[in-house]
Design a protein around this nucleic acid. Sequence first.
RNA 1: UGACCCAUGGUGUAACGGUAGCACUACAGAUUUUGGUUCUGUCUGUCUAGGUUCGAAUCCUGGUGGGUCAACCA
Length: 560
Amino acid sequence: MTTPNTDSNALNFIEEIIEDDLQTAKYQGRVHTRFPPEPNGYLHIGHAKSICLNFGLAQKYSGLSNLRYDDTNPATEDVEFVNSIKDDIHWLGFDWDDREYYASDYYEILYQKAVELIKMGKAYVDHSTSEELAAQKGTPTEPGTPSLYRERSVEENLSLFEGMVKGQFDEGTCTLRAKIDLASPNMHMRDPVIYRIKKAPHHRTGTHWSAYPMYDFAHGICDSLEGITHSICTLEFEVHRPLYDWFLITLGMYKPQQIEFARLNLTYTIISKRNLKMLVQEGFVTGWDDPRMPTISGMRRRGYTPASIREFAKRVGVARRENMIDVSLLEFCVREDMNRIAQRVMVVTDPLKLVITNYPDDQTEYLDTENNPEDPEAGNRQIPFSKELYIEQDDFMEDPPKKYFRLAPGAEVRLKSAYIIRCDEAVKDEAGNITELRCTYFPDSKSGNDTSGKKVKGTLHWVSAKYAIPVELRIYDRLFTLPDLSEAEGDIRNYINPNSLVVIPHALAEPSLAAATPNMRYQFIRKGYYCLDADSSPQKLVFNQTVGLKDSWAKQASKE
RNA sequence: UGACCCAUGGUGUAACGGUAGCACUACAGAUUUUGGUUCUGUCUGUCUAGGUUCGAAUCCUGGUGGGUCAACCA
């Protein structure tokens, strides 16, 4: 028998588990996942991987996926984040229909379940301070020791717990702990705290509750209540799984299975919420949606498309081993999508004046050019050509190296969609800087109607001096200079790339760009992919470089 | 010096006891009115030592390396 080696139908380990479960009807053929963000920050590329996984699995197996906010800590959570999270998921192309849930929806049930635990003698109110509690936990190599309050009566626990949720005690004075196993090698089983007092108002339940459930207690019960089948989370929750199971088994509730996978790591990128927050708060970036940020909102502003991020999520795979994905894979996915959809336009970033000496002074010719060679449906447009043009400084060298295909004294090149020209003279100022190129054009070499018989190696982009419009360009590079930030010695701030943003205030664009819209994607020919930035206005157009074009010439030139 | 998890080219990820494949990267060439795209090719891999087996990336044992866990965070 032949086993096809194509990876198109290779399953990741979670799909294997699901297909197994489908086979054995473990959940009556259901597949129901959930994406459980805590509304305390903006979503990032790591969340995108999780979103694509959870919603993607539901799609693939004709199941469902819920959005559930893990809002069990009112001190850190806010509606601002609730809304941005919804926007980001929708933007990525996924939807949860009417299944928008909150852990806070279940506070009453959670409370009842805690009471049940108390009645079973499996939970107790503890007045130990957090320091005492830490000491009681023991260490991974030494067992824990019982709290003074561990053997309280059910009645006393019941009334104290009621007091906790009703606000009769101050924050930090007591907790509700599950009574499990102080000698467990798994620290999470050593009588974990399941409720603590928080007086901060909750963004949905206000001041109704004064004590809130901890993640470990709430999460599994919420999964259970929603009928989740596969509760997918990242590797660091692996040691929580026995606890996840313990609550549901002890309470006799339906038990989904928790499956852990390795979180995404990206070269030259920091993805933890804590560090992203640092970048924002300390002004290294302009905000959570700064185009250099690996947040979904930052990537959106940068010009990344949802399709490119979904493709990236698919290509990075799902496994249990630690990984470090090369950002070049992300860039590949973006270029791949952009190449399909981006409208080609000409923009000169670093202008050098070029005069065609044998072209009539006041003549303007409108030349036809294709909008996207990869997509015939995209049609054509007209661009104005005249005697005075601008080309890229980079595209002229007075004394070029051998394989230089661009302009040089005496050299001939084609101007994209226009004519072949020859450079006759480079005009210089007193300081010796080249200020202007004087060229001759060949009238019979017009693009699409070339009878000149000339062959040139290079094609340059250009704009007409008379019709070009000024635009600002923002060009981004990686935020850090170290590929693997986990190897940073000392402060990661020492590795921040000082050149992660380069602003080009006065680039010159072909006039069609005056009609640019925020959703359009452009390829500035021979330069990169761009989109309009949120800071743009009709008076001052601002473009973000989403990603540069591959530049094998620059690569070769830098090697010499 | 505990428990648990992990180990396949530079980076990811397949191969489910039977030919180590795919993608990204890098490099080389062809095509090209974008030094883009496209196409072709090349380099590079089963952590280690034993064991089981006709046969091991795959199963077992030891070692090595990496990760996780001792928040009233999630």
